[in-house]
Design a protein around this nucleic acid. Sequence first.
RNA 1: UCCGGCGUCGUUCAAGGGUAGGACAGCGGACUUUGAAUCCGCGAAUCGUGGUUCGAAUCCACGCGCCGGAACCA
Length: 571
Amino acid sequence: MSGHDRKRDPEAPRADDQPGNFVAELVEQELAQGALPRRLMTRFPPEPNGYLHIGHAKSIALNFGLATLSKDGVCNLRFDDTNPETESTEFVESIQNDVRWLGFDWGERLYYASDYFDQLYAWAEQLIAKGLAYVDVRSEEAIREARGDFHRPGVAGPERDRSPEENLALFRKMRDGGFEEGEAVLRAKIDLASKDVKLRDPLMYRIKKVPHHRTGTKWCIYPMYDWAHGQSDAIEGVTHSICTLEFVNHHALYDWFLAALEIPEPPRQIEFGKLNLSYTVLSKRRLQRLVNEGHVRGWDDPRLATLAGLRRRGYPAEAIVAFCERIGVSRNDGVVDIGLLEHEVREHLNAHAPRRMGVVRPLKVVLENYPEGQVEQVELANHPMDPSMGTRTVPFSRELWIERDDWMDEPPKQWFRLGPGREVRLRGAAIVRCTEVVRDADGVVQELRCHWDPESKGGNAADGRKVKGTIHWLSATHAAPCEMRLYERLFADENPNAAEPDFLAALNPESLEITQGFVEPSLKDAAAGARVQLERLGYFVLDTHDSRPEHLVLNRTIGLKDGWAKIAAKL
RNA sequence: UCCGGCGUCGUUCAAGGGUAGGACAGCGGACUUUGAAUCCGCGAAUCGUGGUUCGAAUCCACGCGCCGGAACCA
């Protein structure tokens, strides 16, 4: 996992190509100065109420990466399960699976905020005894009204002055089920006139007569985020509690609770700018709509930026982590160009994906002068730059499939693929010239007749003439049929969140195209989830759900950069 | 409008008062049995106005813009 290791000399100047990470710099400095009160500890604290997406990956990479800065640093996985209404073990499992897939290991340190419910409760009684918390029995509306707003300070009610004894009795009644939901809450007694609205006597506990996925029916009161989070950090010994910018508004409250409990050497909250990605939607609510309303085929739809979706799409975990490190960490609230993610995916796949041939839109080619029934085996490298990946053989015969896009009726001079009378190289096999075009009644090309140059075995002309174009091909009698799922970006608009009337208006109607193509027979032996490059087309992955040897399904992870498209655009 | 956060190439991240740099994207070229990859090159930015200073992206002041905050969500 050396890729996650950011360790470097804090005194050394930053290398030009190392992205900034102000949190890592801060921690490195503290480490160098011996300023930490205990061993370095971070945590990744998801709420188990949804699937992880690439925004979470940034947080995961940050937290687990920070832990590697110190030899005994650790990062905990802690489920922030304080709201039983929305949480479930289904998500607990998918989240662990996704974090593990990214390549991170929390060891034995799997925790739940619900593990701390007893301690939290005891602490709450302590605050009540100190006169720092009280039970409020007014309605939700009444409490909100009395809290004021941005321009109006809150006003205190009579319950604020109740004695600790009365509050303790009321709180125990809450715990014991003596109140119905909504009838009472425990609030911290801070400052109803604070400019910081979060400090206007925030709620610590509310009543929910709902069973919890781990504590069952033991509790009917559940702690709020602000009351649970910092205290959970303190219990575990977390040194740096990293969260996103929307929690800046909670920072003072985070510190207040720890101070009120007189926690020595309290954890420190540090906020960073979360990831936003162009052409992508990451909010839980919007992801939910896409799934529930059937705009995609589920949480792991390859068009979604969920980790499950990206995985099924064929994005390597290493590329996602590399991306998270590439974008850096700051307090800016920016939108990262999805092209950067795609770059990291191509970079990883270019190095690691074995090459294969496949056609997405088949066009039949018959080599008129190639002997009927003859088959020869062509040996091809699995990777052009990495001989260690070996070679494979591909059958070649009289009838072939080529890519329909490699044919043009009236090609411009810049075109060096196939056209009437044009010559092209079949990758690794031979040179052929188009001699006849067979069309149907509508003029649509049905088949190409080509002349095969027997003196061009392997693709080199015996007379030394240059052939500029090389295209991929498949022996029609040997090729394996394959369902091709061609994915594009889910949204056509760079910022779907700004679309009117809502983000759904920005959906790309062509985000999925399915074709019936062919691939080399060798793909029938490939494992589900295997990633390959179909030469000249892009990177593909055997679909983990639907692909079987007798019915291959390939998902296009991402296309290769298309230099011809740029030329064509300028014609 | 009150509180808080943030403003640097198209995007993202740098530059402890001293030549504004990298990556991605873009553009141009070389190479190429993947129009890929690779290699070489080019263009491109300090929100504004004042101030301090020999010197300001950096310090100060005042503006402007964007984001977050008034959940019994996290």
